[in-house]
Nucleic acid binder design. Structure first.
Length: 646
RNA sequence: GCCGGCGUAGCUCAGUUGGUAGAGCAGCUGAUUCGUAAUCAGCAGGUCGUCCGUUCAAGUCGGAUCGCCGGCUCCA
């Protein structure tokens, strides 16, 4: 006799009983309505599935749970596919998974779907949901399935079937629509209470740009309309934080058609923020034993051929011919660093050598990938190359990870870490790959850093660790990267004299901490919604006068604050106080210092934060101390020894 | 690069079935001298992204091109 544990109750299963029957016994009626699937010993199953013989534990999956939402969204994708097939019978179905916050389905159709099409599709979907049609699962042999999909003329499904290894496959049907699908699904279409089709896009079949482009429809679905509304409102809020909107608004940077795509222009405020970041980085690198170096922008083509970049990435480089010589604008900084290393004979005692450069590079990125400051054609990397003995590799990598961690903590970023292993198209010996991949693993493990593995996504010359940050819309962007490289030392014949008096080959690590200054600024702006922490704010304080009678004192205060190293502005315009406060606050200036009759009399300023909070009157000396403490605070919190100075 | 959408004043946008361009904010000038998110009035501002075409007539229709946006692919 089979016994299962369900929500703390032990229930006897008689033969042929479904999970639905067990759960309805264990659950009170109300909660049961919210149950859309079940977990049998951790495996997701339909409610209508028979209790598996080996199962001894069943848990309900509620619609509101993460797994419940995934099932909801996947089912919504099926309902959408059904609607598309009803409206456009010639469309061929391909795949349609649930994704974070929604779902999509790709169709092969002779034209793109229009916004009007989406409305029609939504209407037909609503009809299907209204009819509350059950999802039915059926298990077929691969052969039967092949016959079925061939009869209904769904070539893409046949291709998917050919790739499957199982002898048996499952199909799901509701109404007249049937799809090859692992499941599980909702009990019926009526459980889809809140959905919306959001956009159309082109997408390559199987993600391969050499295969046909399909028509993708994106949608989203939530457990109830309140959750859907709040998600859509969240999206709207996120759009307000978009650095492409905030950048020009705060007069940080802009793009110009006249200049060219992917070439950001930094205005005074933005250039100042940049300089503050770069200055911080320079000091922080010096403190951690890096040496500052600087290479040229243009280097002979032969050098790029030697490094291998010409062969691998030449199509993305900018070239120029000068005095009958071809020069390439550098797409990375390592080549000059190699030359510096080679400029003298190196001893094992010299290693590790850590060359750091805020190196400006040019890469001709495809036009379609450009994205504000996050993907540009000219950018400055906080780039370093560490040349070390093989046995030093792991310590060096650990040091870099600690560096990344410190900096991310300073800014309060949450980040994802990925380790990418050897790709198909790669060079180097198995031994080199194994040794360096192991060093990366061990460095991450030794620091208890959680990470995922991206198999086959390493650089062609070595494995790497990438650190990814999210933008306002939760899209991830690679920032820090740590890349092992054993081919460049070979191409440039790098060596050091070991303790045995013999020449040895060093290993090399390419790494960035922020990634690119431009990208990092973009992510920072979105992270702080434009309200940069005081130590980075281009203008830290603005003196706002009530009337022109107070201007003299304001100018005097400004001079004192400036003397103390604070970035201060005055707003002496003949405008109402409310108007000036509003503008200062919209400019996200951390300290708004109001001066009226009281303040002039007491020789004080009245402090208001950009949050709207009013602090009260303080002397200039007190104000300076307050702002300086504020600047120092993130560094104390981040546990960094770097101290804020101007 | 590929698929789709969009380009009107510095910014945000309106502009009906083709009939010759409009608002708010910002700017300038003047008035107002004011206590914590928008004082009032006046003025000025546009080859409707660019180039071809259709038409008596194009911001509006068609084509090309440049750019931006959403995806896909890519990211040394």
């Amino acid at each position: 006799m089979q016994q299962v544990d369900c929500l703390g109750q032990s229930i006897q299963v008689t033969e042929g009983q479904t999970c639905l029957q067990i759960l309805s016994q264990a659950l009170s009626g109300k909660k049961f309505k919210q149950t859309v699937a079940c977990l049998c010993n951790g495996r997701l199953l339909d409610l209508k599935a028979m209790v598996p013989p080996e199962c001894d534990q069943i848990e309900p999956v509620f619609l509101h749970s993460e797994q419940g939402l995934e099932i909801l969204r996947h089912s919504a994708a099926h309902v959408m596919a059904e609607a598309v097939k009803k409206l456009f019978p010639t469309a061929k179905v391909t795949i349609g998974p649930a994704i974070e916050n929604g779902f999509y389905y790709d169709f092969d159709f002779e034209r793109s779907f229009t916004p009007e099409d989406l409305e029609h599709i939504e209407r037909v979907m609503s009809e299907s949901i209204e009819a509350d049609l059950p999802f039915e699962r059926q298990v077929l042999s691969r052969d039967q399935a092949r016959k079925f999909f061939s009869r209904i003329n769904e070539a893409y499904k046949l291709e998917l079937l050919d790739e499957m290894e199982d002898d048996q496959v499952s199909i799901y049907s509701h109404d007249e629509f049937t799809d090859l699908c692992r499941g599980p699904h909702l009990p019926s279409t009526g459980h889809i209470q809140a959905f919306k089709l959001t956009s159309v896009a082109g997408a390559y079949w199987r993600g391969d740009e050499n295969r046909p482009m399909l028509q993708r429809i994106y949608g989203t679905a939530f457990a109830d309309s309140k959750a859907l509304k709040s998600y859509l409102a969240h999206l709207e809020e996120a759009r307000k934080r978009d650095h492409r909107r905030l950048g020009p608004q705060l007069d940080l940077f802009s793009f110009s058609d006249e200049v060219g795509p992917g070439m950001p222009i930094f205005h005074p405020n933005g250039a100042l923020v940049r300089t503050i970041l770069e200055d911080f980085e320079t000091k922080e690198h010096l403190r951690r034993g890096y040496q500052l170096v600087r290479g040229p922008q243009l280097l002979r083509r032969e050098l790029w051929q030697k490094s291998g970049h010409y062969q691998n990435y030449g199509h993305n480089m900018y070239f120029s011919e000068i005095d009958e010589q071809v020069y390439g604008l550098k797409p990375m900084n390592c080549v000059a660093h190699m030359i510096i290393y080679k400029s003298s004979l190196r001893s094992y005692r010299d290693l590790p050598i850590r060359y750091f450069e805020l190196g400006t590079v040019h890469r001709h990125e495809k036009s379609g990938v450009l994205h504000g400051l996050l993907r540009v054609r000219q950018f400055t990397q906080d780039d370093a190359h560490i040349i070390c003995r093989p046995e030093q590799l792991q310590d060096e990598i650990t040091g870099i990870i600690r560096f990344v961690q410190d900096v991310m903590n300073l800014f309060g970023f949450e980040f994802e870490v990925e380790l990418s292993t050897r790709p198909e198209k790669s060079i180097g010996s198995d031994q080199d790959w194994d040794r360096s991949t192991t060093a990366l693993h061990q460095a991450l493990d030794s620091m208890d850093m959680p990470y995922s593995i991206n198999a086959g996504d390493g650089a062609f010359y070595g494995p790497k660790i990438d650190v990814k940050l999210k933008d306002a819309l939760d899209r991830t962007w690679q920032c820090a990267t740590i890349q092992c490289d054993f081919t460049l030392p070979q191409h440039f014949d790098l060596s050091y004299i070991g303790s045995d008096g013999e020449k040895h080959r060093p290993v090399m690590v390419h790494r960035t901490i922020l990634g690119a200054i431009e990208r990092f600024m973009g992510v920072l702006i979105e992270h702080y919604a434009g309200a940069l922490p005081t130590w980075m704010a281009p203008v830290q304080a603005v003196l706002v006068t009530v009337t022109e009678a107070h201007n003299d004192f304001a100018v005097q205060c400004a001079q004192e604050l400036q003397q103390a190293g604070i970035r201060v502005q005055t707003d002496l315009r003949n405008e109402k106080l409310g108007f000036k406060v509003r503008e200062a606050q919209l400019s996200k200036i951390p300290y708004i210092l109001v001066i009226g009759d009281h303040e002039v009399q007491e020789q004080r300023v009245n402090i208001r934060f950009r949050s709207g909070k009013q602090v009260g009157a303080k002397s200039i000396a007190e104000t300076v101390a307050m702002i300086q403490t504020d600047c120092q605070e993130p560094f104390n919190r981040g546990g960094m020894r770097y101290s804020f100075t101007n």
